[in-house]
Structures are given as structure tokens and as C-alpha cells.
């Protein structure tokens, strides 16, 4: 059988078929309903996220206020910048000091 001819015949048949542009009754209402429900769903997700973020933001602000109050009310020991500098220097040079002592 000539397959190329068969292919061409079938393609011609498909081409000859009338365009079916019929639309189910009230289809536009279905589209509008799905758009509204989709919009509601997106809005719902956004509202949920916004609520969570607001709660987190309020918690963070509360924590900051509590910590500030604590630090102002109970000031701890002040450690000077110089002390920190000396400690850092000792830590960095510890290995070199040990090597010198070993000699």
C-alpha cells in the first residue's frame, strides 16, 4: 500500500472537515466563575502570608524593645576596646610565643 498517498488522503480529509466553533451554553459564565475562584485563592494565599509576616514583625519589635529595656536597666560589665585588642593580639600570637619559648 502506498503510505505516502494514504497520509496525503487522510490529511486532505482532516483539512476538508468543517471548523467546529460551537461553544457550550453559558461557557463564558464558567470562565468568569473560575477566574473569580482563582482570584479568591490567590488573595487568600496573599492574606495568609501577610498575616504571618505581620505577626513575625510584631514579635521581632517586641523582642527588640525587651532587650533594649534590659540593657538599659541592667548594664553589665563594660569591657574596654583596649582589652579586646590585647586579647585578640594574644590569641593570634599564641602560636608564635609557644615556638619562641620552645627555642
Amino acid at each position: 500500500m502506498n503510505l505516502e498517498l494514504l497520509r496525503q488522503k487522510l490529511t486532505q480529509a482532516a483539512r476538508a472537515g468543517a471548523k467546529d466553533d460551537s461553544v457550550p451554553y453559558g461557557f463564558e459564565h464558567r470562565i468568569m466563575a473560575s477566574i473569580r475562584s482563582h482570584g479568591d485563592l490567590c488573595l487568600g494565599v496573599r492574606v495568609e502570608w501577610a498575616g504571618g509576616l505581620w505577626r513575625a514583625a510584631i514579635s521581632c519589635v517586641g523582642l527588640v524593645v525587651v532587650l533594649m529595656t534590659c540593657s538599659l536597666t541592667f548594664p553589665g560589665e563594660q569591657s574596654g576596646v583596649e582589652d579586646l585588642g590585647v586579647a585578640l593580639e594574644n590569641a593570634i600570637l599564641a602560636a608564635a610565643d609557644e615556638a619562641l619559648e620552645a627555642l
Binding site: 494514504l6 488522503k9 487522510l10 486532505q12 480529509a13 482532516a14 476538508a16
Partner: peptide
């Protein structure tokens, strides 16, 4: 082949399957 028309529902249905 010339006896098989190309304006027939059967041919359209067949091409749909393919």
C-alpha cells in the same frame, strides 16, 4: 485509492486516531 473519498467522516476519524 481513488475510490476512498477525502470528505468522509471515517477518514477524518481515522486521521484523528493517527
Amino acid at each position: 485509492p481513488e475510490m476512498a473519498g477525502d470528505h468522509e467522516d471515517a477518514a477524518r476519524s481515522l486521521v484523528g486516531r493517527v
